[in-house]
Simulated assay, not measured.
Amino acid sequence: MLLVLREGTPTPEEYARVRTALGLDGSLFEQFSQFLGQLASFEFGTSLISGRSVGQELLLRMPTTLQLTLIAMLCTVLFATIASYIVAVKRSSIAGKVLRAYARTAGAVPDFVLGVISIFLFFLVLGWAPAPIGLVSATQNLPPSFTGFALLDAILAGDLVIIGSILAHLALPVLVLTLGYAPLIMKILIISIESAVDAPATRFRVSTGSSRLMVMVSIFRRSAPPAVVVCGMLFASLLGGSMILDELFSLNGVGQFAIGAIDTNDFPVMQGFLVLTAGIALVVYLVVDLTNMILDPRRRPGASQEGTA
């Protein structure tokens, strides 16, 4: 139901109509029970501005934001892992010193600032990046939606031109998120790797003639749990950063939808957006806990706290 109020102070009838539409006309217990029932069926009501279902709008737009977040997360973890290894193992090298200094800049520059700088440098000045006007150029169309994730849909459709266009349009926001958030993982991972390199477990493996690969696997396994926790926290930050860049690069994801709701005081949209993002964060934290229990047996329920090799 689309609610349209006239300008000025609403009449009592209009006020009552809006309260009823938002489910605010009952007691607190009734409102909470109604909210839980709607939440169970992924029903967040209808937008006060567009009149469309909030749940359907979020399901339509969230894959675009998650697509950017997941790709950026993968690139951030890979870059941070390689860079942390160089810093920890080749401390005196020029690359190690530069990367260590870079790790100390964690959180120094906001992602939206990096986004504006990247657009100015790579699009306006150098002309390397495509125009920040969406996932594809203005003359192209997105592939038919099967999964909601445009890149995966293009891969399933086998359209190499659209795949290349989507990757080109995602390259700049992914680069911004990677450079902005990789130092947060590096700061923790460098400390963990340096500690694991000098640990008795590492010396034992070296003394018993274990291969270099096995030694490195042991080092990273013992170094990973603290970094995994940071990655879980980082995912929420990357999701927020993706929403900001979504608006900046006109990707038509959930970020633009949420910002539009804030501008128009569209309460059902804001409520649905917050509940959905909170639910995604809870799922990510659960995955982090399960991953840490797999990587470190000492973190499993009922396990002893003795060291492991």
Results as ranks from 00 to 15, higher is better:
P225A: 05
L290F: 05
P200M: 01
F235Q: 06
G209H: 02
R300K: 14
R222H: 13
R221F: 07
F235C: 07
P268C: 09
D296G: 03
Y285V: 14
V283F: 15
R205P: 11
R212E: 06
T208P: 08
S242D: 02
A281E: 04
F249W: 02
S242I: 00
G255K: 02
L295T: 08
V217S: 10
Q256P: 08
A199G: 12
N265Q: 13
A224H: 07
P226C: 06
L248V: 07
C231Y: 11
A278V: 02
M293T: 09
G232N: 06
F220H: 13
F257I: 04
R221T: 10
G209E: 11
A201F: 05
D289Q: 07
D263A: 12
R299Q: 15
V283K: 12
V254E: 06
F273A: 14
M214P: 06
A199K: 08
Q256E: 12
G260P: 01
R221W: 12
I244L: 12
R298N: 14
M233H: 14
L239S: 03
P297Q: 15
S211H: 11
V275K: 00
P225S: 05
T208N: 08
N252A: 10
T291V: 07
D289R: 07
G260E: 08
R205D: 12
Q256V: 12
L276S: 01
I219R: 04
T208Q: 09
M270N: 00
G279A: 04
A224L: 02
M293Y: 11
E247Q: 13
S237M: 14
L248R: 07
T264R: 05
F249L: 05
L251N: 03
T291N: 15
A201K: 05
P225C: 04
M233C: 08
